[in-house]
Simulated assay, not measured.
Amino acid sequence: MSDLGALSYYLGIEVRHGNKTLTLGQRAYASKLLEWSDMAECKPCVTPMEERLKPTKVSTAARVNTTLYRSILGSLRYLVHTRSDIAFDVGYVSHFMEGPREDHWAAVKWLLRYVNGAVDQRIVFSKTGESRLQLTVFSDVNMARDIDGRRSPSDVLVFFGSAPIS
């Protein structure tokens, strides 16, 4: 067995070791995804989904390539490992994998535009000895937001941070 040194890249996740931080990101993976989906030169946007967008499974819009739709969503799901800001939106557009339509595809393209605008976003962990890891969790339920099934999807937001040792 040989020592390969500090971990720098693992399954598409870039690992950077700083003096007091450890960062995880997927810049190269996100860039490849944008190139593969022909969205590398798109105009970036600042939100992961349009504010009032509510696509439904019962859509009259034209069908789109199901294989391409599923492939891009699978890649976006992998990107969620270091990009929790898109987790809800990826999950939302995943509801339409069975029969994607033009309006569903428009939501995925909007999401890819958001990824293009924040391709360098990373998770940062503190490595200081004077602090301990603090886990903060928030949850929310949106009553009957799902238009198709009138279900109440729940959201969970998890923060990892440093807290001083007392």
Rank of each mutant, 00 (worst) to 15 (best):
S2W: 08
G5K: 12
A6D: 14
S8C: 12
G12R: 02
I13R: 01
V15H: 10
H17S: 15
N19K: 13
T21R: 09
T21L: 08
G25T: 10
G25C: 12
A28W: 08
L33M: 07
L34I: 10
E35D: 14
E35I: 07
W36Q: 15
M39N: 00
P44H: 09
V46A: 12
P48Y: 09
L53Y: 05
V58D: 15
A61S: 15
V64P: 01
N65P: 02
N65Y: 07
T67Y: 09
T67V: 15
L68E: 15
L68R: 10
L68A: 15
G74E: 14
S75D: 09
L76Y: 11
Y78A: 08
R83Q: 10
I86P: 03
I86D: 03
F88N: 04
F88A: 08
S94E: 04
F96P: 10
M97L: 01
G99H: 11
E102L: 08
W105E: 13
V108C: 13
W110Y: 15
W110V: 05
R113L: 05
R113A: 02
Y114T: 02
Y114R: 04
V124Q: 05
V124C: 05
V124N: 03
F125Q: 09
K127G: 01
E130H: 02
R132I: 10
R132G: 07
T136P: 00
T136S: 13
V141W: 00
R145W: 03
R150N: 08
L157K: 00
I165H: 01
